[in-house]
Structure formats: structure tokens, C-alpha cells
Amino acid sequence: MGWFLRRVAQSLLMLWVVISLVFLSINFVPGDPAELLLAQDGGSPDPIMVEMLREELGLNRPMLEQYTRKMGDLLQGDLGTSIVDGSPVGQEVMRRLPRTLELIGAAGILSLLIGIPAGVLSALRPRSLFSRIAALLAGTAQSIPVFVLGTLFVILFATVLGWLPAGGFTPFGRDPGRHMMLLILPAATIALGLSAIVFRITRASMLDVLPLDFIRTARAKGVPARRVIIRHALRNALMPVITVFALQLGGLLAGTVLVETVFNWPGLSGMLVAGVNARDYPVVTGVIVVVSAFYIGLNLLVDVIYGLTDPRVRK
């Protein structure tokens, strides 16, 4: 229990450091949100007006005061309001987070559906033609940067073939069919690289498990091959797959910038990029707080699970 509490405290401390770092660094980045707000499409704002807006937005307060206020707000669960449009950041994050999670989730499921069966089959016959082709494809899939793949997908499926829309987003509640159509390409783009990773780990981990004694025992006992593979081998081989997969998904939470850009998907990354571009400090800190909290939480979860299963970790 003490170990668990210490680990949680450590996570919270880390979150605080991350937030402080982001707050500091974003304030040192050149660029003035007040000026940018008034300078849309080459507008030329009067310096006096910029100054007045800065005053109004509280950007002229001493840094320490801004920092303590921010921290106070965060402790109360308030992510602040956007400089650009004055809307609550928390609300916007909560609107966009599900979209990003949906995108990652769809990509994740797709990659598991491709990666695990391919990995298992390939581990069962490591020297077969299928295995070689699969390895080659996985290597290629992993080597195509997402923005290249996304671009090619748009050209092929939207422009040339016209099967799918080129990008955008429709809320599920408004038009479920279109919503799903719009989800396919970005999800597939992320899924391809991810499935290659899943494939490789599944394969490697199956290769590790298959020669083990209990599999041989099960086989010797006359358990059908299918059952051996799925119930015994795969179940044991899945742990590393899940671990790596979970961490990959965590990394994707704000790592879908390029896919969201190419496909015009209004997720969390887009919000972050827009925030950075407009120097909308509350938006940037808000998104990063949520993303890193997610990430730190995920790490904590993995640690706790390991801790529960392996007492040695708990020292």
C-alpha cells in the first residue's frame, strides 16, 4: 500500500513538473496572442489596441502571479478560458477528446484485427511464404510516414476512386453513416503502421511461448491444435502485446497531429496545434495537462499491474 501511494505521489509530482515546464516554455516562445488575435489574414493592429487587449486578457500581470493563478485554477479542475474565443478550455477538450479517442480506438481495433492473426499464423510457420511476405509487408508498412500514407490514401480513395470522402468530420448524432465513412481513412492510416508493430510483437512473443513446456504438455495431452494455440499459447503471449500496444496508444493521444491535419479531423492534436499557432496559452497548457495526465496515468496503471503480479517491483 505504501508503495502504491508513493507511486501515485510520484505521478502527481511529475504532472506538476510537466505543467510548470509547459507554462514556462510557452510564455518564453516569441509571439503575442493579443497581437495575433488582431492580425488575422495580414491585418495590421494598432500597437495601442494590442496593449489594451493584453491588459484586458491579463497578459501584462507578473509571470509569478499568472503562474500561481493558473495553478490555483488547475487545482480546482479549471483549465481556464481560451484567449482567442473566450470559451472554457475544459469544455472544448472534453468535446475533442472523444473524437481523438474514437480515432485511436478504431485504429487500435483495426490494427489488432490485422496484427494478431497475422502474427500468430506467421509464428506457427516462421519459414513459410506467408510469413516472409507478412514480414516484408510489415516492414514496409512501418516505414511509410503517416502523412505520406494519408496523402496517398486521399488521392487514391477520395480523388481517383471517389469511394470515400476526402476528410472532415460529422458528429455521429447528426449522420451516423457519414460519420463512419469519414472515420475509415484516418483510422486506416494510423492502423497500418500500428498493425505492423502488433504483428511483430505477437509473432516474437508467440515464438517465445510455443516451445515452452506447458504447450508441449497440452499438445501431448491431445488438446486440439486450435485450442492449444488460442487458449494456451496466445493467452500467454498476449501480455507483452497489450503492454506495448497500450503505451503506443497513449503516445498517439497527441501524436495524431499529422493525421488530423491531412484528414481535417477536429481532434485534440488539432486543438493543440491551433493553440500553439495562436499562442493561446490556456489552450496549450490545458491540452497538455490532459494528455500528460492520461499518459502518466497509463504508465501508473501498467506499473501497478506489474506491481500486483510481481512483488519484486514493489521495493
Binding site: V154, A158, T159, G162, A166, G167, G168, T261, N264, P266
Partner: peptide, 18 residues
């Protein structure tokens, strides 16, 4: 009104009839 920030996507959406 739907935003298409990426210019290629915007043109593609028009061509595709979106």
C-alpha cells in the same frame, strides 16, 4: 459551413461533391 483547413482536402471535397 464546414471547415477544410488543408487546401488539398478542400479542393478534394468540392470535387467529390461533399
Amino acid at each position: 459551413i464546414t471547415p477544410y483547413v488543408d487546401e488539398s482536402a478542400r479542393v478534394a471535397a468540392l470535387k467529390a461533391g461533399d
